[in-house]
Design a protein around this nucleic acid. Sequence first.
DNA 1: CTTTTGACGCGTA
DNA 2: CTACGCGCCAAAA
Length: 128
Amino acid sequence: MPDAIDGVYTRIYRCIKCIPEGKVATYGQIAKLIDASGARQVGYALSATPAELDIPWHRVINAKGEISQRSDGLADSEQYARLLAEGVVANKTGRISLLQYRWQPSPEDFLVDEEIDDEFWRDQPGVG
DNA sequence: CTTTTGACGCGTA
DNA sequence: CTACGCGCCAAAA
């Protein structure tokens, strides 16, 4: 249990909080949005997600449109159940269509190479 | 200080 | 479609 939530993980958590209901994002997408070191770091952050933070972790899937399996094996059904409740449905192949459900955070106003300023976060719901 | 541990992405064959 | 390799790094022990 981490008693302090600081550093890169905080940015990851903030970014995931911005994912709207009914949309999903990939690990690599989150990583690029916040200029993290890579998609892995996003996964590592999610593995250490504190329960007290209300983070929609279920909206983060891998680049294949599938739900990544956790070490304890708990959340694969849990995650998909949460997505179903938001209207995110997998196709025949058991994968989620990224073309249909991928979250696109105003690509015109958002520059990946620059730091995320407060303006970006101010426009997003659920971010304090 | 060092070592271990991971919810990944992408190119290539 | 599968398999493999490499890149990448924070946090906890």
